[in-house]
Amino acid sequence: MNHSPNDLIMLFNDLFREAYRTVLVKGSDEPEYLPASEPEGFARVVFAHGYYASALHEISHWCIAGEHRRTLHDYGYWYCPDGRTPEQQQAFEAVEVKPQAIEWLFALAAGFRFHISLDNLSGGGAAQEARFRENVCSQAGRYLENGLPARAQRFFEALVAFYGTGATLKTRWREDVRRIAPSTSESALPQEN
């Protein structure tokens, strides 16, 4: 299956350009969110280097940012780059559970391979990697069973329709859980219908 970031740009912009005055665009180095600078302008969700996975991740952040946060650069969030202390990494992991759970489901809907991101290569890695993986898995499972936040649900459904993955979602989800969070209990997984 071909995974072009141009497809994500098209899908995102078709869904959200007019309704939310927001567009998805390829960037160079760092991803960021840029609120509209003019009343009639567009906010921009910028993903790094044209990478498909970066686009999915940045879209997931946008999908859960509230109205006020979407008026702030990078949603007003604190971000400490790679090289975080254990305490900083723990704070990072706490705020990354929902975006990574949504990103995982977007990847699943697109037939794309998801990877957990601890994003702290030169700082000693995860604070508690197994727990983080389980937390992301549990959150994604709840979203899969109960529905995603409204904008995320719309994008998820657009991905399923575009890539034709609806018939295999539950099976692929269970396989992904075993790969991403192998310590997750079988009883925590949504049941296949």
Rank of each mutant, 00 (worst) to 15 (best):
H73G: 14
T22R: 03
G27E: 02
H57V: 00
C63M: 12
Y51E: 10
D82Q: 10
D7S: 06
L15M: 11
S28A: 13
A53R: 01
S54V: 12
P31F: 01
L8K: 06
S60G: 04
Y77G: 13
V23R: 15
Y52E: 07
R17I: 09
L24P: 00
E87V: 13
V23K: 15
G27H: 11
L11R: 02
R21V: 06
V46R: 05
M10W: 04
L8V: 02
M10T: 13
L34S: 09
L34N: 12
W78E: 15
E67G: 09
L24W: 00
A43L: 13
P39F: 02
R44K: 15
Y33T: 07
L15Q: 06
E58I: 01
H73K: 15
R44V: 09
V46C: 08
L34C: 11
E40F: 15
T71L: 02
Y79R: 04
E96I: 01
E32D: 01
G41K: 02
T22Y: 12
F12H: 03
Q89V: 14
V45N: 03
E38T: 13
I59Y: 00
Y75S: 10
Y79T: 04
S4L: 11
Y51Q: 08
V23D: 04
Y51M: 09
L72N: 12
H3M: 08
A19G: 02
D29V: 08
L11K: 03
C80H: 05
H61T: 02
D82H: 09
Q89S: 10
A48E: 01
H68M: 11
A53Q: 04
Y77M: 10
L24N: 00
G41E: 00
T22P: 05
H49Y: 06
N6S: 10
P35F: 11
G50V: 05
Y52G: 13
H68I: 04
V25H: 06
Q89C: 11
Q89F: 10
L72M: 04
A91C: 07
V95P: 09
D74L: 03
L8R: 05
L56Q: 01
A36Y: 03
P81L: 11
D7I: 15
I9A: 07
R17G: 10
Y33L: 08
D82S: 12
R70W: 03
Y75G: 08
Q90R: 15
V95T: 09
A53K: 00
G50F: 03
E40D: 11
P86L: 09
D82L: 05
Q90W: 02
I59D: 00
R44E: 04
A65K: 09
G50S: 08
H3T: 14
A91P: 07
N13L: 14
S54E: 07
T85E: 11
S54L: 12
F47E: 12
